Amino acid sequence: MNLIVESVERIAVLRATALGDLLLILPAVEALRRAYPAARITLLGKEWQVPFLRGRPGPVDDVVPVPPMEESLDPPPELVGRFDLALQMNGDGHHANAFVNGLGARVTAGLRGDDAQPLDRWVPYVPYQHETLRFLEVAGLVGASSDDVEPRMRVTRDDYAELRSVLGQLPRGLIAVHPGGRDARRRWPAACFAEAAARLGRPVAVTGGDHERDLVEKVAALIPRSIPVVGALSAGGLAALYTACDVVIANDSGPRRLAAATGTPTVGVYWCGDLINAGPLTRSHHRPLISWTTQCPTCGGAGLREPGGCDHPVSWLTDVGADAVAAQADELLNA
């Protein structure tokens, strides 16, 4: 069956999310680019994505920031009727499908949860499915396909220039650890990061955002020869830093996905359910270590994604040992 939409000049892709979530759609958007080589692809996203993607080689031609859909389901008037094809890659569609339908595109396609509006073409949103494969299914609804499942992102001269201006000359043999993450339950303990890094005997960059300053400084204080890098680099500059590293050790986070997208080997520490949805899909350069903890270590409550799960801010990843992480990193370093 030929699912290609004829005479498409402009495509909208809705993905108004954080860094790591954006990276997960790249294989699907690359597939759209190959299927519709003459079309202009616009990412409907967030303000931070504008400077990050401006001038960066890749499948996205431009970024238009959109307001939070929780505040308004109506797209800005200047976007209505602008696109031939609109794809919803923003989640289960509870808010997003109404927004995409409001764009007035000739054909809409995307994900649909139980309480979401239907689109012209849709696949069901189910909780446990890898996000990249989910979005490739969406691309498939309009005739796009790809054998590439790992996101790829080009690092630019401007990214490298930013890195040099902020950090100067970096030591040879550098590795990075990123101990942060949005959810304390999904963060490996700081002492474990320090122990794993110390076993490798390399100079270490400890990365994090401004909101993670205390955590970065805690980890850096435990690692000799460490370089704390806190909120000093843009996403592009951080990508350049990771290309200068021989391996990156991180939680399931945007920075781990960013490092992987630049081609740097990674070791990630995952809660088992999160590995299903967002872990690396290949193993030659990326090694996940998995926590099989299924109940809150504090109260014994339900799993992280289950109804009625608790919010105790304790790590669910403590059953992953520093020796196992260091062993996987050492194997990648010596591959």
Rank of each mutant, 00 (worst) to 15 (best):
111 L>I: 08
149 V>F: 03
92 D>S: 15
65 P>T: 11
73 L>S: 07
65 P>C: 09
115 D>V: 11
56 R>T: 08
68 P>E: 14
60 V>L: 09
76 P>R: 03
96 A>R: 03
64 V>E: 05
137 E>F: 15
119 L>H: 05
100 V>H: 12
115 D>N: 14
59 P>V: 11
84 D>W: 01
165 S>A: 14
139 A>E: 10
41 I>N: 04
112 R>P: 11
41 I>H: 00
99 F>L: 09
161 A>W: 03
71 E>N: 10
63 V>A: 12
139 A>W: 06
102 G>S: 08
162 E>M: 11
119 L>C: 08
54 R>A: 15
102 G>A: 09
98 A>I: 05
120 D>L: 12
54 R>K: 13
146 S>M: 01
114 D>A: 12
158 D>H: 13
160 Y>D: 08
109 A>Y: 01
80 V>I: 06
147 D>I: 02
106 R>S: 09
81 G>S: 05
38 A>V: 13
121 R>Q: 01
142 V>C: 11
132 T>F: 08
96 A>F: 09
140 G>L: 13
104 G>W: 02
126 V>P: 06
99 F>M: 05
59 P>Q: 12
61 D>R: 01
155 V>M: 03
69 M>R: 01
53 L>F: 10
149 V>N: 04
151 P>L: 00
140 G>P: 12
65 P>K: 01
89 M>Q: 14
129 Q>L: 13
115 D>F: 14
53 L>Y: 04
100 V>Q: 09
150 E>Y: 02
149 V>I: 12
105 A>I: 05
42 T>D: 11
133 L>P: 05
37 P>H: 07
128 Y>V: 00
111 L>F: 08
53 L>A: 11
84 D>L: 11
119 L>R: 00
112 R>A: 15
155 V>D: 04
133 L>Q: 03
54 R>N: 11
68 P>F: 14
96 A>Q: 03
58 G>Y: 05
39 A>R: 01
146 S>W: 06
104 G>Y: 02
125 Y>M: 12
127 P>W: 00
56 R>G: 08
57 P>H: 01
119 L>M: 08
90 N>V: 07
102 G>V: 07
92 D>I: 10
150 E>W: 04
53 L>G: 07
116 A>Y: 00
116 A>C: 12
151 P>V: 00
138 V>P: 06
90 N>R: 02
129 Q>M: 12
109 A>E: 07
154 R>H: 07
97 N>I: 06
109 A>K: 05
128 Y>W: 10
49 Q>V: 10
148 D>V: 03
122 W>Y: 13
51 P>Y: 14
167 L>R: 07
166 V>C: 06
81 G>Q: 06
80 V>S: 01
61 D>P: 09
46 K>R: 14
169 Q>G: 11
77 P>F: 00
41 I>K: 02
131 E>R: 08
56 R>M: 10
158 D>R: 13
138 V>D: 08
111 L>K: 05
86 A>Q: 01
56 R>P: 09
55 G>M: 12
114 D>V: 11
133 L>W: 05
154 R>L: 03
156 T>Q: 06
48 W>Q: 02
61 D>Q: 04
154 R>N: 02
46 K>Y: 10
115 D>H: 14
123 V>A: 07
137 E>Y: 15
130 H>M: 01
61 D>W: 04
106 R>D: 07
83 F>R: 00
64 V>M: 06
137 E>V: 13
58 G>T: 05
98 A>S: 08
128 Y>C: 00
57 P>I: 03
91 G>P: 09
73 L>N: 04
118 P>A: 15
58 G>Q: 02
